[in-house]
Amino acid sequence: MTASFVAPPRRLVTGTIDGRPVTVPEGTTVLQACRQQGIDTPTLCYLETLTPVNACRVCVVEVEGSRALVPACSRAVEPGMAVQTDSERVRTSRRLVLELLGSSVDLSLCAPEVRRWLVRYRADTERFGPAQAPEAARDAARPGHHGPAETGGAETCAQPVKDDNEDYVRDYSRCILCYKCVEACGTDAQNTFAIAVAGRGFGARISTEFAVPLPDSACVYCGNCIQVCPTGALMFRSEHVMRGDGRWAPERQTVTTTICSYCGVGCNLELHVQDNSIVKVTSPLDHDVTRGNLCVKGRFGFQFVQNRRREG
């Protein structure tokens, strides 16, 4: 819900970033200020359209006088604040966050900038030893208990893909637990609350109640969670099947922007077409009505339009 009344002019605050003075309207986050300065700041759990959860900690910066580092994505610039974005402490923490993620989940389908950050921070995702799949099913993890610590390598979140409905699959071995899908399914967009974070610690996971398959949950297949997922953990079934067959070829795809014809709201659709078939549907985040969100008809209706053969 966006309230649109005329806000009083905001006061300006001045601080420094990497020694350079910056003046921004009160309430501007350190991340926004960094972006204005052209400082590339890694983010994983942050998205313009969602409430910041500041959980991934890859965006941390050093603020003079603060004992711990602070998350740039959610901390507002304060008067006189002195921010360092590339100190030894910042680089170490960012590198460790990337190494820890890389050692526990499959980052191979993340956006290209994630690979860029892995290189920039010299993250060695293998340094904790060879990947070891967990012994017990992750959906059965009990809070406050875990099996004997792995001595042969690094325990991961590896698990089978959840392929339980016609529209999309969930491969939580790629999930970095950024909370974006939960927010999109909840108060930030969809208000369906079909999924939530369950368990705790390393056993924390995105789940329906009692891990029931999606068709038994409240899910309405709006696909808004897929839209925000940064890792490929949530994926159109069409894409998943084509990747499995080796037919997925982004270089052969075109994107056509159109307006959804199912109802009168006027949502923008981006149709991704490969070999004359629609293979997935997204929606632009910056659209002022939909902010990237659609309903099941816009998101998955294409399957009926082209009467696609069910594969797999």
Partner: peptide
């Protein structure tokens, strides 16, 4: 389990 440095 919220933040990466502690969770992992």
């Amino acid at each position: 389990g919220q933040c990466v440095p502690c969770r992992v």
